[in-house]
């Protein structure tokens, strides 16, 4: 049965549905349309569009024109409204306009053979948000067996989906400002003024989904790069200006010896791993034989060949004591 909606006098109403085939469906749609026409009176209007034409973009919908859009109000609600349908309906609504939409949804995230129903109530809500609607309220109720049969018949399938499909009723609004509000943008010194303008200007519709982490469609990042981006710097630009050829730099976790200045076969591929060399030489700290006098100062001041490398600083003659958590085993058995 058709769900009734009471329009106000003077309103412009957009009715979107799939008319055809089912005689009961056509009948109910006609009656709904008649009652809407009566409600809006002579100062209002009721326009009807086929949902398929809205989907394809062949329906000529004026922007920001309607106070209310009623979508698929009549059984069988076997249409899953795509993002392009939702988007075009949004455009057609006036700011703060109302959407009344009906759709069958899945009870749980299971796929059902038969009618083209693939989403749950939560997914429908997400799609609405993503399309730009706000204050979406979705209520679900059980679907009658009779309607299910009609859904199946309409789609030529025989599988029954009793108990796993619900009827969702949606009430949502278009945000209270217009999409695509444009301001002349200037560059250079006025960039800051522009940025300020953008900050106070009405937010654009796409900014509404800024905080959601939805699986939105994204561009192919590999297609972003141009020829010149793929170029690599040549050896000359990497070398010292005095003409010394650019030698291969040691990796941050070098194990092949390049970092220590060993001669390395340049053609050999370096395989850095996480296992740097071990330094286990015991050292005598009481009788240090220091040529530079810096051995006690700590690694920051020691020579690269200092035998005390790796040890903390110490006072000459005093035994090195490791403090903190090295005093005892901090592992639980």
């Amino acid at each position: 049965m058709a769900i009734s909606y009471t329009a106000k006098a003077g309103q412009a109403v957009l009715l979107v549905a799939r008319a055809g085939g089912d005689a009961l469906n056509l009948d109910a749609l006609q009656r709904l349309r008649d009652s809407l026409v009566a409600q809006v009176g002579s100062s209002g209007k009721v326009d009807f569009e086929q949902v398929d034409r809205v989907e394809e973009g062949t329906a000529a919908l004026a922007s920001a024109h309607y106070d209310v859009a009623i979508v698929s109000p009549v059984m069988p609600h076997a249409i899953e409204h795509s993002s392009s349908v939702l988007g075009r309906v949004l455009l057609a609504l006036k700011p703060s306009g109302t959407l009344v939409l009906y759709e069958l949804v899945l009870d749980t995230a299971t796929t059902v053979e038969g009618p083209p129903i693939t989403r749950t109530q939560q997914e429908l809500e997400q799609q609405l948000k993503f399309a730009g609607f706000v204050e979406a309220r979705v209520e679900v109720q059980a679907v009658s067996a009779e309607e299910l049969l009609r859904v199946d018949a309409a789609n030529g399938s025989t599988a029954s989906a009793t108990g796993r499909v619900l009827a969702a009723t949606v009430l949502a609004s278009k945000p209270a400002y217009n999409v695509g509000a444009a301001a002349a943008l200037s560059f250079g010194k006025k960039a800051k003024a522009k940025a300020k303008e953008l900050a106070v200007a009405p937010k654009k519709a796409w900014m509404l989904s800024v905080d959601s982490d939805d699986e939105a469609e994204i561009e192919d990042q590999d297609e972003l790069l141009e020829e010149e981006d793929l170029a690599k710097p040549d050896a000359a630009s990497l070398a010292r200006p005095d003409g010394v050829p650019a030698k291969r730099k040691a990796c941050k976790n070098c194990t092949c010896g390049l970092a220590e200045g060993r001669m390395v076969d340049e053609s050999e591929e370096c395989k850095p791993t996480d296992k740097p060399k071990r330094f286990t030489k015991p050292v005598d700290v009481v009788n240090i034989k220091s040529a530079c006098g810096n051995c006690s100062l700590g690694d920051a001041f020691r020579c690269s060949s200092c035998p005390y490398l790796g040890q903390p600083s110490f006072k000459p003659g005093e035994k090195v004591v490791l403090g903190g958590s090295m005093l005892y085993d901090d592992f639980m058995p």
Partner: peptide
């Protein structure tokens, strides 16, 4: 990663950042 995925969205208009230097 999340920011990058957002920036790649097809729904971003071509003047989304026209105010940015």
């Amino acid at each position: 990663k999340r920011f990058w995925r957002f920036l790649l969205r097809k729904s971003l208009p071509h003047d989304a950042l026209s105010a940015m230097e």
